[in-house]
Amino acid sequence: MSHPEVAIIMGSDSDLPTMQAAIAVCEDFKVTPHVEIISAHRTPQRMVEFAQQAHQQGIKVIIAGAGGAAHLPGMVAALSPLPVIGVPVASRHLKGLDSLYSIVQMPGGIPVATVAIGNAKNAGLLAIQILAAQRPELQEQVIAYRRSLSEMVQDKQEQLATVGYQQYLKDYQAASSAG
């Protein structure tokens, strides 16, 4: 892996289990992630410094996960020239809906791409696709990944057609309860 091109930041260490999926995607595509805990509320000066300097450190995309008030993605986007992808982290009381609303309600001129609640995997994939726009070898990996998704669905359809929906459902439920 090379120098970090994707920064994956989060407001709290409790966000790390969610954000791990974005880290894994970067690693799967051999893109080095830079991972940090940066709180918009508890370490605001550190957040400002990070957001203003990330592009000078070779970072190309920032993924920011946040729960609750979820100000981190928007504040970083306001301070950085880089694309920011917000990951709403599920909260205890409102199940992440508060985080989602906070991240998607950005004023005109300060865009933040936003994925579904808890879906850091898609944030990682979107970051990879942003990088792939300028890197043909990475774009080929994205194409191969998409092809593998299609093949996976086709394989499942063939299995369904072979065993019938009742047996397929039984096998699916057994596998789900085992794993």
Rank of each mutant, 00 (worst) to 15 (best):
P4H: 10
P4E: 14
V6P: 00
I9G: 03
I9S: 03
G11I: 10
S12K: 10
S12D: 10
D13G: 10
D13N: 14
S14W: 08
D15W: 09
L16N: 00
P17M: 04
M19H: 06
Q20V: 07
A21R: 01
A22F: 00
A22E: 02
A22H: 00
A22K: 04
A24S: 14
A24H: 10
E27Q: 15
F29T: 05
H34Y: 11
E36F: 02
I37P: 07
I38C: 07
I38M: 08
A40T: 11
H41N: 03
R42C: 02
T43D: 11
V48D: 07
V48M: 13
E49A: 14
F50N: 12
A51K: 06
A51V: 05
Q52S: 12
Q52C: 06
H55M: 09
Q56W: 08
Q57M: 12
G58I: 13
I59N: 12
I59Q: 13
I62D: 01
I63W: 04
I63L: 10
A64K: 12
G65W: 07
A66G: 07
A66C: 09
G67E: 05
G67I: 03
G68M: 05
G68E: 04
A69R: 07
A70Q: 05
H71K: 04
H71S: 06
P73D: 04
G74M: 03
G74A: 05
S80G: 10
L82I: 04
P83S: 12
V87L: 01
P88F: 13
S91A: 15
R92W: 06
L97M: 14
L97C: 07
S99R: 10
S99I: 01
S102K: 10
I103R: 10
M106Q: 15
G108Y: 11
G108S: 15
G109M: 12
I110K: 08
V112Q: 07
V112K: 07
A113H: 11
T114L: 04
G118P: 00
A120R: 08
K121G: 00
N122I: 03
N122K: 08
G124F: 09
L125M: 15
I128Y: 08
I128W: 09
I128K: 12
I130N: 05
L131M: 14
R135V: 02
R135D: 14
P136V: 01
P136M: 03
P136C: 06
Q139Y: 11
E140W: 07
Q141M: 15
V142K: 14
I143G: 00
Y145N: 03
R146F: 09
R147T: 13
R147V: 05
S148R: 12
S148Y: 03
L149A: 05
S150C: 05
E151D: 15
M152G: 10
V153S: 08
Q154W: 04
D155R: 14
D155Q: 13
Q157S: 05
E158C: 03
E158T: 11
L160C: 01
L160K: 03
L160S: 00
A161W: 03
T162I: 01
T162L: 09
V163Y: 00
G164L: 02
G164W: 01
Y165A: 11
Y168L: 02
L169T: 15
K170W: 02
K170Q: 15
D171T: 01
Y172S: 06
Q173I: 15
Q173K: 15
A174D: 14
A174Q: 14
A175L: 07
A175I: 01
S176N: 12
G179F: 13
